[in-house]
Design a binder for these strands. Structure first.
Lengths: 220, 220
DNA sequence: TTAGTGTTTTAGTCTTGGCTAAAAATATGA
DNA sequence: TCATATTTTTAGCCAAGACTAAAACACTAA
C-alpha cells in the first residue's frame, strides 16, 4: 500500500502529536498542526484508516498503528538524512534546511536513501540534534561485524572502520573500498586469515587479516 | 508565475519535441511523449498558453516561447545536475539514475541547485554525455557524430547514446563500453555496416550498424 | 435530564490532472 | 470540389485534497 505525499505528511504530523505513537490525537489538533481545517482532516483520517496506518473511531480521535509508526519513521528518517546532507555537504545553515528537506523527504527510492546514508557515514543525529531512525525504523539495531568475522559467500555492506586514521582511509580509497560499498566474501585463507572480497559486484580485493579486522560491515 | 510539476513535465516534453525550441509540436506528439491522451493535452496546452510559456493556436500545435525555453532549460539543468550527483557521489550506475532524477528535478530551491552545482564542481555534461545548461540556460554542445559515421582509423571518445533505454545501457556495460571511453575505428564491413572498435586501447569490440548508430562520439 | 457549547462529521463546491465519447476542424485524395 | 479520414477540441465525469456551511455528536453544568 503506497501513501501519497499528503498522506505521508498527515501521518508524520499524527506521529509527532501522539508522542511516539502512544497517545490518541484529536482531529482539531491535527488540523492545527497541518494548518488546515478540521473538515479536511476528517476526510483524510478516513483514508488513512482505510489504509490501516491509523485506527480511526469517528468522534474519538486516532491512534497510529504499528504499520503507521513504521511509515512515519521512514519519512522522518529521510527528512533528517537530507538535512544532514544539506548542512554537511552543501553548506546550508541549520535553520535553512527544513523547507527543502520537507520536499526531498518524499522522493521515492529506497536505494537512494541507503546510498545517501552511506555517503553521509550513517549519521545518528540530524543538524538539530534529533535522532535519525535506522532502516528498520528505530526498532532493530544493526549488528556490525568485522570483515574477518564474516564467512565465505556472505554479503553485506561496509558501514565503518575501527581505525579511521588518514593512512588507513587513504589505503581504502586507493584499493577502491569505501563506506557504503556492497561487498561479498569470495575466499578466506586458513593459513594467514587473509581474504578475497568482491566490491560492488565488480572489483576483487585481497586484504590481510589485519585490514579485514579494521573494516566493519552489516550483513544483508 | 510558478509552474506545477505536471506543467514542468509537459514543458520539458514540448522543448525536447521541438528540437530546442525551433519546430512546432502537435497535440498528438505531446500525448505520445507524455503517455497520455490528446484530450488531456489540449487542456494542458490551454493552461501553458495562459501562462505564456508556449504560443498555442488551436488545431495548429504549439511553439515554445522564450520564457518557456528558459523554464524548460532550468528543469533540464536540474535533472542533469542530479544525475551527476547520483553517479559521482552515490555510486549509482548511469542506467539507474533517470527515474530518481525525474523526481528530484522538481524540488523548488534555487539555492539548492546553486550549491549542488558548486559541490559537483560545475560539471558541463551529465553521465550520458548530454550538456548541462548553465544558470542562464546557455548550452555548450560538443559536435557529436554517430559511430557508424566515423571512418576507419579515426579516434574519439564516447560521449552519449541516442537510445538511452535501460536495455541498451545494460548491453553497453556488458560489452565494456561506457561514456568517456576512448575508441578507435579498426574496421567497417561494407556489406552490413558492422564495425570493429578498439576500446581504451585494449578491448576489441564488434558491433552491428544499428548499435553503432546509437552511440555518439566526439572526434579527437 | 436537558440545554448549551465546543468538536467532529457530512454535504456540497472548487481546482488540478486525468479519462471517454462525441463533435468540430483540418487534411487528403478522387 | 466533395467525401472521407485524421487530428484536435469540447463536454462531461472521476479522484485527490482543499474549502464553507450545516448537521450530528459528546461533554458539561444546571
Amino acid at each position: 500500500m503506497t501513501l501519497t505525499t499528503a498522506e505521508e505528511n498527515y501521518l508524520k504530523a499524527i506521529y509527532h502529536l501522539s508522542d511516539g505513537a502512544t497517545k490518541s490525537v484529536s482531529t482539531n489538533d491535527v488540523a492545527a498542526e497541518m494548518k488546515t481545517k478540521p473538515a479536511s482532516v476528517s476526510d483524510m483520517l478516513r483514508k488513512l484508516g482505510d489504509k490501516e496506518v491509523i485506527e480511526y473511531r469517528k468522534y474519538y480521535g486516532v491512534n497510529i498503528t504499528e504499520e503507521g509508526k513504521k511509515r512515519a519513521l521512514q519519512t522522518i528518517r529521510k527528512h533528517r538524512l537530507w538535512e544532514v546532507f544539506l548542512v554537511e555537504k552543501l553548506q546550508f545553515a541549520w535553520d535553512e534546511v527544513h523547507e527543502v528537506a520537507e520536499e526531498l523527504e518524499h522522493i521515492q527510492s529506497p536505494l537512494l536513501i541507503q546510498r545517501l546514508d552511506s555517503y553521509l557515514n550513517f549519521p545518528k543525529f540530524d543538524p538539530h540534534g534529533d535522532p535519525i531512525p535506522d532502516e528498520y525504523g528505530d526498532v532493530r539495531a544493526r549488528p556490525r561485524l568485522a570483515l574477518n568475522e564474516m564467512d565465505i559467500d556472505q554479503s553485506g555492506q561496509i558501514v565503518a572502520v575501527k581505525d579511521s586514521s588518514a593512512a588507513f582511509l587513504k589505503y581504502l580509497d586507493k584499493v577502491g573500498a569505501y563506506i557504503g560499498a556492497r561487498i561479498k566474501v569470495l575466499d578466506k585463507v586458513e593459513f594467514d586469515g587473509s581474504m578475497e572480497i568482491l566490491v560492488d559486484q565488480k572489483k576483487t580485493l585481497f586484504m590481510s587479516k589485519d585490514v579485514a579486522a579494521n573494516i566493519l560491515a552489516i550483513q544483508s
